[in-house]
Design a protein around this nucleic acid. Structure first.
Lengths: 188, 188
DNA sequence: AGCAGCTCTTAAACTATCTTAATTTTTATA
DNA sequence: TATAAAAATTAAGATAGTTTAAGAGCTGCT
């Protein structure tokens, strides 16, 4: 079988050939053009996406027009508005393709079925959420403890594959500063 | 059975009487006095703790002496340095009792055994980490998108039970501002 | 290839937040 | 309950970050 998602899943659990076949048929492929949205803020968030190829950005747009980037996702990442998804309610985030993307779409209903019918998926997503929690807690810590310069340096060191896909303005909205200020910080 | 932890676990999975008995015997009770540490930054983080009673604060102390509060934990919360715990490496955090505490101690080895021997614990912790991830992502979002005043208001609205246990200085280190500035923000 | 629209940079004026230090208020505990 | 320590407040001067505006450099699109 040829999908990246299988090696992603098999980092943590093993899959039989029949399970792979089942998944392959159950996960629709979604193709996106650059700048297209796979989720729009305010819509019910029905799916979790695995990124087979391409890159995306999840962001919030507030009433004043200020954008905040919540996460980037590149090949082999999972992405959605997780709060909207697990509670099946309106998304706080929009998710846009930064380039042409090929995604696999995992619906809420299918995921619930996977949990009960193939219990090792509980383990897989337990590990996925565990890692996601650790990453986000680290980010929240850095946000309150580090200078903008330190957070910028950490970001480009930790995510070099993301950095090459995105603009400096997008990094700024991820760090929570203006592009003008980030530019000034870099000059030093 | 009399422990709060059972109703905590049974929010998401069901436990038989024999499973409860097993857990009861496998989870040592740890009593802490006010200001005592249950984990010290730099030590290997061997345990995850459930708070039967009392309240705690997890914080980082950097080389300049600056404290950052990563989380508070009150009755019915789970707490540890999760990155240190899941990777069995040195903690970035210290965890101190804010008052007399009664904790249940779940070791790394026991948790790994629970995952394999009682697979529904995969489900329980999947849900736990899922919620923790959503919470931390929300926090990171607020840190980059909201003013100090808005983050303060959100904190006291969302965690009134925590607010009554802690000082304003501790809130400041959680929000990532100085106590002097938080005081000024409140005056408005 | 060329235009239109982004992105990046620079700078000045403005606002948010920090630092330091002194004073008052609250709290823990001998 | 008295006292010492910690927390909270206030204020002045310093630094970090924003806003606005303008110009230079890239990039995607036809």
């Amino acid at each position: 079988m040829d999908l990246h998602i299988f090696s992603n899943i098999q980092k943590h659990i093993s899959l039989s050939e029949s399970e792979k076949l089942y998944l392959r048929n159950a996960l629709p492929v979604k193709e996106l053009k650059r700048k297209e949205l796979v989720l729009r803020q305010g819509q019910i968030c029905r799916n979790l996406y695995y990124v087979e190829s391409g890159s995306l950005r999840a962001f919030n747009l507030n009433d004043d027009g200020k954008e905040s980037t919540i996460m980037f996702a590149i090949r082999d990442w999972w992405v959605t508005d997780m709060n909207g998804f697990v509670n099946q309610k309106k998304a706080q985030l929009s998710i846009e393709a930064l380039e042409h993307c090929r995604l696999l779409e995992l619906s809420y209903d299918l995921l619930e079925r996977l949990y009960t019918e193939i219990p090792k998926f509980e383990r897989f997503f337990r590990i996925l959420f565990q890692n996601a929690y650790i990453r986000e807690q680290q980010r929240a810590f850095h946000n309150i403890a580090l200078s903008t310069e330190q957070r910028y340096q950490y970001f480009i060191d930790k995510y070099p594959d993301i950095v090459e896909k995105i603009t400096q303005k997008q990094i700024a909205t991820y760090l929570g500063v203006t592009p003008e200020f980030l530019s000034a910080v870099k000059k030093k």
